[in-house]
Every structure is written in structure tokens, then in C-alpha cells.
Amino acid sequence: MDTLVDNIIAEASGKEANIKMRCRDVSVFYAEKQALNEVNLDIKPKQVTALIGPSGCGKSTFLRCLNRMNDTIDICRVTGEILLDNEDIYDPSIDVVDLRADVGMVFQKPNPFPKSIYENVAYGPRIHGLARGKAELTQIVEKSLKRAGLWEEVKDRLDEPGTGLSGGQQQRLCIARAIAVSPEVILMDEPCSALDPIATAVVEELIDELRQNYTIVIVTHSMQQAARVSQETAFFHLGNIVETGSTDEIFTNPKDPRTESYITGRIG
């Protein structure tokens, strides 16, 4: 009895103190096919959490649950509970539009809109009415581009199309675009997989900096990347989370044999 109460107290205080997003028994079905099976994961604030695992194991599916992007897929059904700051994001009272402003997303392939660099970044603030006037909007754009480490490269050509930038710049533009709506959490789905090694290094450095202000969840297929940028790691396998823990712990001392064989390159 006492232990139960203790547990509840511990859990409640844990929720408040150092858990940004709490996922309980999350299952996802595409029509009849189950892609995730009762997954549990706690995401700590102002940390980078890496999701690793062989392809097709449900990393992207899980990531897309966190800002309800799966809602856009007709056949997709999500069960379980996901809390953002103790609020259930699948609760009917929650507005997805607000949720996605709080939990931003960066995609695998850079997808800037076919608009100017300025308009790309201003897009989010405009639809959410975050700026009171042109000057304020310009301020937001500048601040976001600076945070995304792109300002020096594009400040003289804000009117040029975003699609004209290099791949790495495009991806940083997409990050700036996400930052512009001042989210609390940023989800990144293999953000460097379409980039060359130099652009990858730049983006990784950026992710490390962003950690000061944002909670970041990143899907990656590269072990080295997970080791370089993340503090927490979750290992996915066939729709289950096999192991979670601090990145150091998982990479140096994996508990599950499957994690070990994936990290050492035997499965994947």
C-alpha cells in the first residue's frame, strides 16, 4: 500500500520536474497492420532524445504520434496516452493546430515552400498571428534564422526562393521555419539523411545548440550521429521499444542483446 502511494507521488513529481512528454502504452495501427506495440517512453526537457533502430521498426510512426501528424493519414489509428506537460494531446479538447505550434517538426527531405526565404520563415508566425506588424514579423524572421545558423548566409537575399538554397541550407531553413512559431519541442525525422557530410556536421552542431532552448526528439539511422548529438536514446525493434536510457549507457553498456547486436552492426 505504502509503495503504491510512494509510486504515485514519485510519478506525479516526476511528471512535473523533468519529463516533457510522457508516452504510455502507445500502439499504432495502419488499417489492420500494427506498427507500434504498447510503447512507453519519457522525454526529458531541454535534452536531445535519439530514436534508433532498424528501418521499418516504427521510429517515424512514433515521432509522428508526438504532434499528431498521423491524423493526416486516413487509415492510421493511435491508442494509448501521450502527455505534453501533463496534458493528453489526444484529448478532444486539444486543438491540433495549437499542438503543432508547440511541437514542431523537421522532415527527412528538406521541404521549403516554393516561396522566398523570408516568406518561408514568416509562414508559421503569419498563420498563428504571432506578429502585430511587419516590423515585428521581420524581427521574428531574423531571430529564427539566427538561431538556425543561417542568417549570415542569407541575410542579403531574403527575397530569393528558398528552393534555390543548397540541401544543407534548405534543411536549416526548415529548422528556422519550425523555430519561428516558438515551439517547445522539435521533432526531427532523419534530418541529415539527405545531406552531405559537411552539411550534416553543421546541422548536428546546430541541434546541439538548440538544446539550450528546446526539447528535441531526433530519429536517426546513424549510430555515430545518435552518439554525437543525443543525451537520451531509445532503441526500437519491430514496433517495440527494447531499451531506453542515457546515450552513454546504451552505447557502452547495452542491457538487451538485440540492442548490442544492432549497435555493433550485427542487425539492421
Partner: peptide, 15 residues
């Protein structure tokens, strides 16, 4: 028009 553009916009909270 690529789906990725629609996803990008939806991901920013556009209806």
C-alpha cells in the same frame, strides 16, 4: 504538388 509541402505546412500548425 508534393505531399512533403503539405506535411511541412501541417507540421507548422496550418489547417
Amino acid at each position: 504538388v508534393p505531399q512533403s509541402l503539405r506535411d511541412g505546412s501541417a507540421g507548422l500548425g496550418a489547417t
